[in-house]
């Protein structure tokens, strides 16, 4: 078996002014995860290499790093699967400051989770401690997926919107929020969704989809954000959208140079809530669609005709 080169980004605040790369050579043992390899390097080649880990079974969320530019859970990733031409580049997660080597500062990450008030707010009047509250299987399924989140911050690391706007709540916090907004036991649905619709909230997501791609569980933040937007729409929390939509558009272009078709909220909300949608469509979008959209839409959108129809109807109004 040939050796693989692990090109690892290093930084020790006690010594270094800047980050640099160091190469380690290792024969990847059969079935070894990326975490196994990092440990082998630490234990047999360089004890100063620093990274986080604990459960090594993909449940504690400690061990995310970036392999070849994308966030992965090191203990869930077969090392051989990320080695390309016997080489893999390992960097710390993005969108966060580095503490040392692959360990990043999670302070802001946790602050944003805290900001969405991540605890159940039940109807105190209805509370009885003597029995459990029932929840239908259907109701349970609405929150099951979000509840699988392990807070590994992989999505946060690779979020495009975060990259251009540090104030954005980010995919982890929003996925967590969905778990309360749609929990049949929580009574604050409306006030939560109002708060989440504020600046830096659900409308600031550019739908780049990185979060769901990087998510190692079923939590898939983008799907949760789409759920939240649907709730907002269905419950009539629709004021003051224009600015936010425009912002999302600008951001999408800023971060990817293109307008992702998913950025258009209608696509994610379904096409049934026509009045709601119409009330939503901001001036920015209209202008966009009228004048400059064709070259910017980078691949054909399935429901484009539907979208056009809706806009047409809107113009007529």
């Amino acid at each position: 078996m040939s050796e693989t080169t692990f090109k690892i980004q290093r930084f020790n605040p006690e010594k270094d002014k800047e980050t640099y790369f160091q190469e380690f050579k290792l024969e990847i043992p059969k079935g070894a995860t990326l975490l196994d390899c990092l440990n082998l390097i630490k234990w047999t080649q360089d004890g100063t290499l620093t990274f986080r880990m604990s459960c090594r079974s993909a449940i504690c969320g400690s061990c995310s790093v970036r392999a070849n530019g994308h966030a992965v859970l090191a203990c869930k990733t077969q090392a051989s699967s990320v080695a390309q031409n016997d080489q893999v580049t390992i960097k710390p997660l993005g969108n966060m400051e580095i503490i040392k080597d692959l360990a990043v500062d999670l302070t802001e990450f946790w602050k944003k989770v805290e900001a969405i008030k991540p605890w159940l707010m039940p109807d105190e009047k209805k509370e009885t401690q003597t029995t459990e509250r029932t929840q239908s299987v259907e109701e349970f399924l609405k929150i099951d997926k979000a509840s699988t989140c392990i807070m590994c911050s992989s999505c946060y690391s690779d979020c495009c919107s975060m990259a251009v706007d540090k104030s954005f709540l980010g995919p982890t916090a929003l996925a967590k929020a969905q778990r309360f907004v749609e929990d049949s036991r929580d009574k604050e649905t409306i006030s939560r969704i109002k708060e989440l619709s504020e600046d830096a909230g659900i409308w600031d997501c550019t739908h780049c989809g990185e979060c769901s791609q990087r998510c190692p569980t079923e939590a898939k933040p983008l799907d949760r954000i789409v759920s939240l937007r649907t709730v907002a729409l269905n419950s009539g929390v629709t004021n003051n959208y224009g600015a936010r939509h425009a912002k999302a558009f600008v951001k999408s272009i800023k971060s990817s140079g293109i307008l992702n078709e998913n950025t258009i909220p209608v696509a994610s909300m379904g096409f049934f809530n026509i009045p709601g949608l119409l009330s939503l469509i901001p001036v920015g979008i209209r202008m966009f669609l009228k004048g400059k959209n064709p070259p910017l839409i980078h691949h054909p959108m399935q429901e484009l005709d539907d979208v056009k129809r809706i806009f047409k109807k809107f113009e007529e109004k």
């Binding site: 159940l120 401690q129 003597t130 459990e132 929840q135 109701e139 349970f140 929150i143 099951d144 509840s147």
Partner: peptide, 22 residues
């Protein structure tokens, strides 16, 4: 049983029976 109910009231996402119980 009390401590399980307390967790349920905190909002723990338990799997449910057809009747909606834990």
């Amino acid at each position: 049983p009390g401590v399980i109910r307390k967790m349920e009231h905190f909002g723990c996402v338990f799997s449910r029976t057809e009747k909606g119980l834990i």
